[in-house]
Write a protein that binds this DNA or RNA. Structure first.
Lengths: 234, 234
DNA sequence: TCAAGGCCGTACCGTACGTTACGGTTCGGC
DNA sequence: GCCGAACCGTAACGTACGGTACGGCCTTGA
């Protein structure tokens, strides 16, 4: 299933169209799913006729908006050469921190909300828009694609021990996200300061290493303090 | 607004009203958020006038439906006396298994979907229905309330080591749920057989014990096989 | 037996919103 | 300067649905 999203995203969009999609995105964050075509047109200072001409219908606009946002968060893959326990730990903590920042951002919450709201058991009309697949593909699965090479490199370097990279990834995912995403999606006020995110990232990383770190050599696990200095502060 | 039916959950509901809410619940599972008052009335063989009389408006019906479902899953608390590592392990695995069954059930997915869909940044009208809070209260927080005494008992018995029961619970939560709930909510087909759930519960439990188990005594951690026989097979 | 009330079925109303249509304006090409 | 295309703003249309009204049926109680 996992959907196509093949012809990747931000292609064949004029600057004006990108501006319109940005307006739709802002509106989505502010108003949730019940954004209207009229509101988008007004916010973007364009006519509804143009919206329909460009995106077909409301579904098309929603899909294009989600894909547009997805195309903006592309990140370069991390290379795992010259891996040491320290650099692996830093990499994992950075992944964790980045992921927590993503799932706690207004944009991510809004996008996940609309995708979940439209992921009902019975899809309307013909076109399987499948916003959920797009969000999943650019969220959870994108994270897995980026993180797994790091895990594999860690295993190659004798720093990690696991038989199933997918299972290891999912454990890392669980240790990082815990109940944060579902609580935010359900409207729980949950303030995540940068400091809290950094601390959680370090904790998740330490826990992951405790579970999957290779038990070789005399050096014990890093202390959290060894990490704290290296996490991004902004 | 809210009509009568305001106070807690399944009280003061006639049998007929419960039947109507069951019909609404079934419809919610089948059709997602876009269930209409007309559809509920037809399914429940009652008039719309009655729906409005009993539940005030659509929000009231939705709220009552969610509360009705919540009232059905009340479970007795687990007592933690005579705790051994084996019994603690079994308890944790059972919690994990139960929780995975809950979050992967059609009903839970439907309820979470509607609650998330209505948890937008700007709440409509006056009444803060806050379905999200209800779902959260009867889901994540109810689990915490039931599990924490077990964790505390485990600590009292010298089987677990942690300083913050909330943090320990959230780690357990993350190890159990991982990416399951978000994937299901986003429409990912993810078949969870009972066998897979049982295996995941055991794995999560073992990982939790590896992180929070007291490092005392010569006995190593239980092998997964020790557990497999004790998990519910239905 | 009759009256009152609760409820079913359905017709009806008002509104919100997706979608379409159209007149007016700008702009690039000839 | 002229033409057509693209686009803006807005009005208009159709429908879906939340909410209300009403007639008829059934039950209860005097």
């Amino acid at each position: 299933m996992q959907a196509s999203v093949d012809i990747d995203t931000g292609e064949a969009l004029t600057e004006r169209q990108k501006a319109v999609l940005d307006a739709a995105l802002r509106l989505l964050v502010e108003e949730g799913d019940q954004l209207t075509m009229t509101a988008v047109a007004r916010r973007a200072s364009c006519s509804k006729e143009t919206l329909y001409k460009w995106f077909g219908d409301r579904d098309g606009l929603l899909t294009a908006t989600v894909q547009w946002q997805a195309s903006k968060v592309r990140v370069p893959p991390v290379d795992g050469k010259g891996l040491t326990l320290a650099s692996l730990t830093v990499s994992l903590a950075r992944f964790a921190s980045d992921w927590l920042k993503v799932i706690s951002s207004d944009t991510s919450i809004a996008l996940n909300r609309v995708a979940i709201g439209r992921a009902g058991p019975i899809r309307r009309k013909d076109g399987n828009d499948d916003l959920g697949a797009i969000v999943l593909e650019n969220g959870r699965f994108a994270l897995a694609r980026r993180l797994k090479p790091v895990l594999e490199a860690g295993r190659q370097a004798g720093l990690l021990e696991f038989s199933d990279a997918e299972a290891a990834f999912r454990t890392f995912f669980g240790l990082v996200a815990r109940d944060v995403q579902i609580r935010l999606l359900l409207g729980d006020r949950l303030e995540l300061t940068d400091a809290a995110i950094g601390g959680d990232a370090v904790r998740a990383t330490q826990q992951f290493l405790a579970l999957y770190g290779a038990k070789t050599g005399p050096q014990g696990p890093l202390e959290p303090d060894d990490l704290r200095s290296s996490r991004p502060e902004i």
